[in-house]
Nucleic acid binder design. Structure first.
Lengths: 341, 341
DNA sequence: ACTTCGTGTGAGATCGATCTCTCCGAGGGT
DNA sequence: ACCCTCGGAGAGATCGATCTCACACGAAGT
């Protein structure tokens, strides 16, 4: 019942019969402290359950032992996985992780970053919601806050980044469809303000162009990265006359939605429609047939981002490093030869 | 390039030609401030981009505008969803969310809560990793920190809680299997230190006893809540002579694992084995047949937990409230009549 | 004219941890 | 005997925001 307040250095110092300064020295192990005094201080600290007030320490040192992470959406399995990895890595270096999802909303992203700045976090890992409008990020970097971009790289941002080869992965996916004889290849992509969406779109177009196939805007649908939106988009795409024979979806939730939509429309994968998705996911091996995907090394992204961030926090001050992982095509059963023509 | 430090009240005060005290009054709107002075202060604050240092404010007021969340594992879709909901609700009340996953490890949970306490967060939402050893939680509550338990309720803990009727849900699931003629019903459950596991086990046993069926320890497997562990557990269960005809899994990742394992063993659901899982999940409607589950109102848990926490933060001081949502059986196609006997 | 208010304002204290500066005293060197 | 060095320890400053207290000044009341 007693909401007694936590013990402070002052309490410990008093209990050990020394000054606050000596207590601090003993606790943090710097400067000169006599053995006897140090021992008394440590004993008192243990006895009183002294834990130290991070907030006060942070005020003094100017920073909280916290790393911020601003994903597009925690519910997306991709970001959940990355968040988990970041959490583990951050904990390994005595940092807490503050997760604040931008919900892919630029205004919210700005507000969140303002918040993180006001909290004086040590560094921030961000998956920016927009390619274009990122003055707030530039500002943060400019102020000297360590920032690492993940998943979505902004070419002109002077900070480290970790991503995958979105263009190449998308190109490989579409080329696979092309070499299986598909000509009418549909694409469901994100809001084009997101860099990954642009890059994957570029991969799609480059593959088509390389094979002298026309780019048909009616085969390209834009959807939010949620299952529901993807279902709608898929239905729109496949309700057209001269229906596509293949579909490439740029993220796992979309692939999920597409699968559900195709099933509800009575279209069989891969007989009627070949499907390939970007980003591997649990469900991909659950369906019959299993889904062919372009896999990203998800598990490497978080840890690397944290390592880069820590380097910056510890003073590393070279030119920005940009790591781009290759993707890997995982052949399963959702792509078949197009016999229709 | 200039890592200039953020503007402080002092800067603003100087720019407005008033004292720090007056600047603070103008900015926070309390006490007496002249109109002219107030205007100058606000103008200066805007011009200099004053944002206020949360850490300093927190030191003064004793608390950071942060809510802590300690889930068992962020990667688990259930917790990811809840985390998302908490994030949204917390943001609505100007709080940031600090997520620190305990990975179901008691030692880690203790360390994380210590951390949160040292940070003077305003309140904590926890899914405790253990029923037994929770002195650290009791301590936290005792100290007056608002705490809300979710998913896993500790009966004797004097704090609010939000959970679902695990015993009832599990009982309903097992009864469904029994009424379909199943007698050898297997169970895959969590580490029994987790309360939900105990409650669901109780529901399983109660259902069996109510129908005078024996409880056979060889039909009960313990597994971590991961797909891989569940696969192993399933294989163990179904490699026995006199194999079970039905399986009840207590969480979605386990259901996933069970499904994969059964498939790999060449056992057809529901012909050879009937399957029912606790917690609905996306994949459940992906498989053929779709999986029958006991659904929890996931979307209600996070928001309610935050509301309860905020009440406490704002001084609500009545007896602990315990909310327990009912579960809902969703009949799909994975349970069939047992004809074998 | 002299006390009271009612406003408006600033100086300084406070929160907790830590750093700087200064001081003390024992021992070594000359 | 005197100076210096160095281990050891305390007083006070600092970080930034905010609160308390005291003060000043004009207006109103007696």
């Amino acid at each position: 019942m007693t909401p007694r307040k936590p013990t402070t250095v002052k309490d410990v110092a008093a209990a050990a019969n020394v000054s606050r300064a000596t207590a601090a020295r003993a606790l943090n192990g710097y400067g000169y402290v006599g053995d006897a005094a140090a021992e008394r201080v440590l004993e008192a600290a243990a006895r009183l359950g002294y834990r130290g007030n991070r907030v006060a320490q942070a005020l003094r040192q100017g920073q909280l032992p916290i790393i911020g992470f601003v994903p597009g959406d925690i519910q997306n399995p991709f970001f959940a996985r990355v968040a988990h990895d970041i959490d583990v890595a951050a904990r390994g270096s005595q940092h807490s992780l503050l997760i604040a999802s931008s919900e892919e909303d630029l205004t919210q992203e700005r507000a969140l970053l303002d918040n993180l700045r006001a909290l004086n976090v040590r560094g921030v890992i961000v998956a920016p919601a927009s390619v274009d409008d990122n003055a707030h990020l530039a500002q943060l970097v400019h102020e000297g806050t360590p920032v690492v971009l993940i998943d979505r790289v902004l070419a002109d941002m002077p900070c480290d980044s970790v991503a995958v080869d979105n263009e190449g992965g998308a190109r490989e996916a579409v080329e696979l469809l092309i070499t299986h004889g598909h000509r009418r290849i549909a694409l469901i992509q994100d809001d084009s303000r997101i860099v990954t969406a642009r890059d994957r779109l570029a991969g799609y177009m480059n593959a088509l162009q390389a094979h002298d196939l026309p780019i048909n805007q009616r085969l390209i649908a834009v959807s939010n990265s949620t299952v529901q939106h993807a279902i709608d988009a898929t239905i729109r795409l496949f309700s057209q006359p001269d229906r596509p024979t293949a579909l490439f979806t740029v993220d796992s939730l979309m692939t999920t939605g597409a699968l559900l939509a195709l099933r509800s429309m009575g279209l069989n994968v891969p007989r009627d429609v070949s499907l390939i998705g970007f980003d591997d996911f649990d469900l991909a091996t659950f369906t019959d047939p299993q889904i062919t995907v372009i896999a990203q090394p998800v598990g490497k992204i978080g840890p690397l981002a944290v390592r880069m961030l820590l380097d910056r926090i510890h003073g590393f001050d070279e030119a920005p490093r940009h790591v781009r992982f290759p993707t890997r095509l995982i052949l399963r059963g959702s792509v078949s030869q197009n016999i229709a023509r």
